[in-house]
Write a protein that binds this DNA or RNA. Structure first.
Lengths: 169, 169
DNA sequence: ATGAAGTTTCAGTAATCGCTGAAAGTTCAT
DNA sequence: ATGAACTTTCAGCGATTACTGAAACTTCAT
């Protein structure tokens, strides 16, 4: 066997490969490359919590690049910043519920809805206005239903937790 | 008043402005510029049905550009093509239910799910794997719930239609 | 078969994007 | 206040993207 291929290091290699593979999936979904890699790295990290410097080192990327990438991810609410007092480091944090943000925070909805209303007013009584109205209806329906759906999700999660705790007792 | 500002033409101007405004919202959401303008133009058109040549003319864009834009939109399932026989024209069609595609056709889901499974296998028993597992759970939950949600939406729409028909009778 | 009406493909290009590296800014310790 | 540790900002650039215009292709009519 070649040098540096112990079991432990092979696993690190596999994890690294996974990071790049998952990052590709994200870039195909529209993420900037480095933001995708930063996010994947956070996801597979033990604590889900890394500093800018740690990310830059692991990814061999510049501090500036990392800064932009985390800004992008924070904006999408996929990670959050923790500035722990007593040190100058910022820590960037991801947890298991990151995917919720992709469901609840749809940036198009609010602005799109406003646009559609305007369009309907301008178009007056017409098939085009009917079309926009149907879209508007669906947007409202989705807003309500999505809220209810996520409520159910949280209830289920809470229930799972209490059941696990009960079993342990 | 300046020439060409009759009521009818003012309305055309307002509609044109709306097209560009809505297109901006879409480009901010990640659409290529021309694809966004093509889509907005289709939305506000009387029939929701225009040929490539009509789109090129309205938008003062090249035929090649329009060709790429409609390919993009078809791929996202926001419009569909109708090649009506007896003529060489292709018609590009949008209807009131276009927004459904944004809900049901999430390109990330399948590939993301496969990636997550791999990641979990590689990571073994660890907090990182727990994180990925929670995401996977949510993805499954969302797939089921979204299906049910859209079923409810269609039922509601069907009900609305029958009620309108009954009132008319 | 030939031509006309329409669409797609593709090379070229202008504009935009995403990264690096350096400088400036911020925060904490003394 | 001063300096050290760390992050952000930003000019510069290489890579990518999205459009144009021309040529190639397809489809229908004669």
């Amino acid at each position: 066997m070649a040098e540096g291929s112990s079991v432990r290091e092979d696993k690190a290699g596999e994890v690294g490969a996974f990071v790049e593979r998952f990052a590709s999936t994200l870039t195909d979904a529209g993420f900037p490359r480095l933001a995708a890699r930063v996010f994947a790295t956070l996801l597979v990290s033990e604590t889900g919590r890394l500093t800018a410097a740690e990310l830059a080192e692991k990814l061999r990327a510049s501090s500036g690049g990392v800064s932009g990438a985390v800004r992008y991810l924070v904006h999408l609410r996929l990670i959050r910043v923790e500035r722990d007092p007593g040190t100058r480091r910022h820590a960037y944090v991801v947890d298991g519920s990151w995917y919720e943000a992709t469901v609840t925070a749809n940036p198009f909805l609010e602005r799109g809805e406003a646009d559609l209303r305007e369009g309907i007013a301008i178009l007056g009584d017409s098939p085009a206005a009917d079309r926009l109205n149907e879209t508007l209806d669906l947007i409202h329906f989705l807003r309500d239903e999505t809220q209810a759906m996520m409520r159910r999700w949280h209830e289920r999660k809470a229930e799972q937790r209490t059941r696990r705790t009960a079993r342990r007792a």
